[in-house]
Structure formats: structure tokens, C-alpha cells
């Protein structure tokens, strides 16, 4: 039945591609999470009235974030070829996609982090200050825990965008379901392969959204 409907689909290869998509997404997500939180914290802390209020630094960080968010992802990959080659040692395969994936999505997540931090009750930060808390303590014990549900839903949205990016990265040979659909499906006119890959990507997106939502809900005690 399956072989009749999808004559060109070799499931062994599909699973490898699925694994690669997961691999790229998860590693890139981890990198994005760390880098994005750092960027978001910098944006928040250096803004007006922030704990490290600093107009110049805020302007620089905001500019970098905006520039990287403005570059279309496919072009960002090409621009980063020399950098990727230097860091990873190759410009092909799942690992080669990681720098572009992280640099492409961290600024986006950084903005989401900034928004999440702004939602933290100013009064709670003031209370922590009144208790004699250091800035580090305020960041680690007030700002991040109090914004955690928003940080998690932010990383969920970013993760889903990242799955899309991995598919684009496939075009330059990064591997994964996008790569597979393009080279084995589209270019060989095997549209059953494209269909199967699409369904798998949609399923992955659903899984991400579901996991993200349940973690966010569980964390939220408001």
C-alpha cells in the first residue's frame, strides 16, 4: 500500500533526513537560547531606566540585532560561508548549517527576550533592590525566573522558525528534510517524496508547539 502510493520514498533515507533536521534544530535552538538571552538581557539592561543604562551600548546592540534580522536567511548563509568554513571546517552537512542558523535566529529571539523581560513587574525588581540584591542576583533570581513562561513560548516560536530555516539551509546542502525534499523530490520530479517530507516537518512543528506550550503552562504560577 505505502509502496504503491509513494513509490520513490525510501524510508531509511527519510529517517536519516529527519534525524538531521532534529539534530540541526535542537543544537541551533540551544545556541539561540543562550545567545538570544544574552542579547535580550543586554538590550533590556542597557535601555533607559535599566540597571546598566548605557545609551551607546544599547544603540550598538540594537543595531547589530536589527541588521541581522533584516538579512534574508538564504543570503545570510551565503555571507557566512567564510566564517562557517573557518569555524566548522566545511560548508556542507548539518554542522555547517549551525552558525547561520544560530546567527539568523538569535537576534529574533533576543528581541522576544527583551519583550519578556519588560513584562517583569518593576515593583519586584525594586523589592529585590531594597533587599540589597546585586545585579547578578536580580538577573538570575528575579528577571529570568519571573519571565520564564514568556522565554519558553518565545523559544517555541523561534524553534518553529528554525525548522523552516533548516529546510532552507537544505538547499545549500545542509542535509535534513528540506535538503531531501529538494534534491530527491523536487529535482527528480518525485513529488511523493516532497509530500512525505512536508508531512514530517509539519509533525515536527506540532510536536515543538505542544512541548513548548505545556512547559510554559506548567511554569506559569500566576
Amino acid at each position: 500500500m505505502f509502496n504503491e502510493l509513494f513509490p520513490n520514498v525510501k524510508m531509511d533515507d527519510v529517517w536519516v533526513a529527519t534525524y538531521e533536521t532534529f539534530y540541526m534544530t535542537l543544537i541551533a535552538l540551544l545556541g539561540t537560547f543562550i545567545l538570544g538571552i544574552l542579547l535580550g538581557l543586554l538590550l533590556y539592561l542597557t535601555s533607559r531606566g535599566g540597571l546598566w543604562q548605557n545609551k551607546a551600548l544599547n544603540f550598538i546592540v540594537a543595531s547589530i540585532v536589527n541588521v541581522f534580522r533584516a538579512i534574508p536567511f538564504i543570503i545570510l548563509i551565503l555571507l557566512l560561508f567564510p566564517f562557517t568554513d573557518f569555524i566548522v571546517g566545511t560548508i556542507r552537512g548539518p554542522n555547517a548549517a549551525l552558525p547561520a542558523l544560530i546567527i539568523g535566529s538569535a537576534p529574533f529571539y533576543g528581541r522576544l527576550v527583551e519583550i519578556a523581560l519588560r513584562e517583569v513587574d518593576k515593583g519586584v525588581v525594586e523589592a529585590a533592590k531594597a533587599m540589597g540584591a546585586k545585579t547578578n542576583t536580580i538577573i538570575l533570581k528575579v528577571l529570568l525566573p519571573e519571565s520564564m513562561p514568556a522565554l519558553v513560548s518565545g523559544i517555541t516560536v523561534t524553534g518553529i522558525a528554525l525548522i523552516g530555516y533548516t529546510a532552507i539551509a537544505g538547499v545549500i546542502g545542509a542535509g535534513g528534510l528540506g535538503d531531501f525534499a529538494y534534491f530527491y523530490g523536487f529535482q527528480r520530479r518525485s513529488f511523493d517524496v516532497v509530500f512525505v517530507c512536508t508531512v514530517l516537518i509539519v509533525i515536527i512543528v506540532f510536536i515543538f508547539q505542544f512541548i513548548g506550550d505545556s512547559i510554559s503552562n506548567k511554569l506559569d504560577k500566576r
Binding site: 515593583g123 519586584v124 531594597a130 533587599m131 540589597g132 525566573p145 519571573e146 511554569l219 504560577k221
Partner: peptide, 15 residues
């Protein structure tokens, strides 16, 4: 740390 403070809107950490 030697000066306690309480607030109109309590300012507790919800988390």
C-alpha cells in the same frame, strides 16, 4: 539588608 520594606502592591515573586 538592615532596612526592610513593604509595598502597596506587595511585589512578591509569583514564581
Amino acid at each position: 539588608q538592615d532596612i526592610g520594606m513593604i509595598f502597596q502592591h506587595f511585589n512578591l515573586l509569583w514564581s
